[in-house]
Structures are given as C-alpha cells and as structure tokens.
Nucleic acid binder design. Sequence first.
RNA 1: GGAGAGGUGGCCGAGUGGUCGAAGGCACCAGAUUGCUAAUCUGGCGUACUCUUACCGGGUACCGAGGGUUCGAAUCCCUCCCUCUCCGCCA
Length: 427
Amino acid sequence: MLDIKLIRERADYVKAELSRAGVNGTEIDAIIACDAERRRLQFELDELRARRTRESKELGRLAPEAREVRRAEMRELGERITAGERRMAEIEQRLTDLMLSVRNLPRPYVPTGSSEADNRVVRQEGEPAKLDFQPLPHWELGERLGIIDFERGVKLSGTRFYLLTGMGAQLERALIAFMLDLKTREQSYLEVAPPLMVTTETATSTGHLPKNADTMYHDAEDDFWFIPTAEVPLTSIYRGEILDAERLPIYLTAYTPCFRRERMSAGRDVRGIKRGHQFDKVEMVKLVRPETSDEELQLLVEDACEVCRRLEIPFRVVQLCTGDLSFASAATYDIEMWAPGIGEWLEVSSCSNCTDFQMRRANIRYRPHRGGKTEFVHALNGSGLGLPRTLIAVLENYQQPDGSVVIPKVLRPYMNGAELIRAGARL
RNA sequence: GGAGAGGUGGCCGAGUGGUCGAAGGCACCAGAUUGCUAAUCUGGCGUACUCUUACCGGGUACCGAGGGUUCGAAUCCCUCCCUCUCCGCCA
C-alpha cells in the first residue's frame, strides 16, 4: 500500500512514477476523491459523537421525569450517527479496495522500460564452458540417469508435476542443506520453518492478495491459501507489531515448498522441471530501517550470488526495468545461472526491495528515536535460490560426455562424499 | 468433535450500563536523593485519525473480531475467532 498522505499531497508525482511502471493514474484520482469524502465525513461524525457523549452524560444526571423529553432528540442524534457510520464503513471499504489495488512505486534509480526486453545485465561472473560435446537438456539427463520421473509425476498429479528419485532427490536435499548452512552460518540469517498455508490476511500483507488470487491455490473449505513463496509467511511474522529499533535489521531464511497455478504461463516451459505447480525454494527476507534498504538490497543480491559462486556455475545479475517489476517491488535484481543444455540463462533468484509497501499493509513499524513517532520498516526478499532451476543448472553444467554428472565440490559433504551421479537404481 | 473456563494497555491484573482510555502492580523513561550497586521519592509512560498547529491544548475511534439492545456499552444480547482444562479422535 502506498502512503495516503503522499497521494494526497503529491498526486502528480505518484502518477508520474506509476506511469513509469506502465500504470495509468485513474485509480489515484478515485482515491483522492474518496479520501476527501472520508475525511469530511470523519470530521462530521467526530463532532456528532462528541455531542452525544457530552449530552448523554448530562442526561444521566437529570431527574427521571426530565429525561423523557431529551431522550427523543437523543435518539434521533443516535440515528444520525448510525447512518453516518454506515456510510463511513462503505467509503472506507471502497478506499481500502482502491489502495490495495495500487502497485508500489519504483525506486528512482530503476531504469524505465516496458518489458523484459528493457532489463539490463549489470554484471556477469564466470564464462559458459566451451564443451567439446553436445550438452543434453536436464530432462534427458534426468531420465537417462533415472533421477527424474516425469511420466509418473503426471500420473499422480497431472501436468507440471514430476518426481525426483535416488541421487536426484539426494542432490536436491544436499542443495537445500548447503544453502541453509550458508545462510545461517555465514550470512547471519535466522532459519524459520513457517506454515505453508496462510490466511487471507497474511497473503494480503505481501500484496499477493487481492490482485493475484488466481495465481494461488486456495482451500475453499477452510479458507487457506497455499504459499507461492516463503516470502508470504516470513514477511508477515511481525504483523501488527512495533519492533525495537535495536532489533533491526532482521534477517530470516526458510526452506519451503511453494505452490503456483502458473495459469499465466500456460504452454510456457512445459518441458523439464523449470516451471512446476510445486517447487522447493530457500528464501531470504529482511526487515530493515528505511534509509538502509537500497544498500541492503545490494547485500541481499550478493548473498544470493554467493550460492552460485560456490556451486561454480556461471551467472549474471540483471536489473529489472520499471515495467518488469512485480506488484510489491520497488527495485528488483534477478540472478540467472547459465544452463548449457537448454541454452539459456535461467532465473534462479529474484531479489526485491519492497520498501514500506508490504509493511504498511501488515502494519509493521519501529521507533527510530526513543519516545518519537513510529515509522514503517522496509522489507526485502530474495530467493537463495530456487531449487528446480538450480538443479537444472547443476545437471547441465556438470554433465559429462557419457551422460554422468559430477557433483559440485561444496555438495559432496552433504552426499556422503559421492563425486559422481551415474545411472543407478530407478523406480 | 463434545463439555467447561476465559480473552482488558509491554506484562500481571481490577472493572455495579454513565464521571473508564480504563484502578492497582511490574517493567520502562526523566528528575530528585544517595560513597558504588541497590533502595526511596516525584513525574511521565498505548496506537491511529483529526482540530488548532510554533508550542500548549482539544476531539474521535480502539478493552479478541463483527453485529445488536440503549440517550449512553469494556460492562447486557447474538455470531465468529482464539487460548486454557477435561473427554474423544489422530500423524
């Protein structure tokens, strides 16, 4: 949610920044009108209520027979207040709906653009290896090695599901353990194992609801939402709380499965494990002081890059343009690993500074100065990393001419010292 | 799932339908006092919106959530949520 005061006082600026992200400002005009109406009514109601309180107290002191006369007019006053409150509730609902529908403003340094095509590669580390054989895509490697089973995944759950088995499942588990150890032991994140199903309120805090309801799985019976990313529960942990300034910055990490409809990408990436309805991810979330959030974003990107670096896989960092930013994000850097089998740079992480956008929805604040006013903190999130795609990159970069796959050195301690995956026991 | 008890400020805890934003205590902050520590005394000590706005000050809302009764609700009624105890069931 944006700051209503900012919209009220600097509407032109807000509209200009929204238009950089490809959003027109009609909602802003509606918000301004609604807000003015709300304030007018609020003032009116406050006065009526003040009068009621005052006169009710007097009424209580009157002699019983004198009360009856006043009671009639007081009843009428009460009815006016009730009517005003009903109207107020409507207006507030309308205003809230409007406010929830407006995306975050991009940070000033984010390049203006309309689509993915305007994103900028800001740096690259490592060069794609020159192979003297034709690299296979991971789905072929996976099936030959007997570590990915697509057919049975479809049998069990339909399209976009698969099973990892044997060394494939172990490799993923090793990646998870390796990432979490790096996050918690070296990068000072606190590990959390959060709920995977959350309430409507929680999913609204992060901006996933109401706008992206159709991208999430929902249990109608009990009104649970299956998390599309651990960002949802992690960012909402402190909802409604005022944090001690000394506790900031807060760094959290979590390994969780994630669930996504992927209706928007129907037909895209249907082969392999790049885009499933369910996938595992290690996520990082930071809650920080506002003035540090841009710097914290750089550090967050660096924390994600370190995973790629230790896996010794070439990667690059891409700065998203305004038009490619997600709803809640004010600035985003994607990290892409090279995948020679499918011949593309694979998005394995997306690191965003969501500024105070989610914190205002979640009402998470801190007190910058002792005895001073509260302020919203800033929230950031980033993958560290998404597992299926990291798995793709490992399989495709470490494949050998004979179809076997060398296990990256950092993962070997997590796999009983094994160095190579070759065809073995299968389902 | 059944039965019962309960949800009040950072915490504990009082609260006959009106003078309750809410006693009291703890914690915390400031000042006073005091060889140090501690103790004692005095004052302060929720959030948000709003009026005046430099300051002081004022108004309104919030006592789990939402409805209702009433001139007036933390207090009465209804629905829901949550916590605790007992029983049942279960990974």
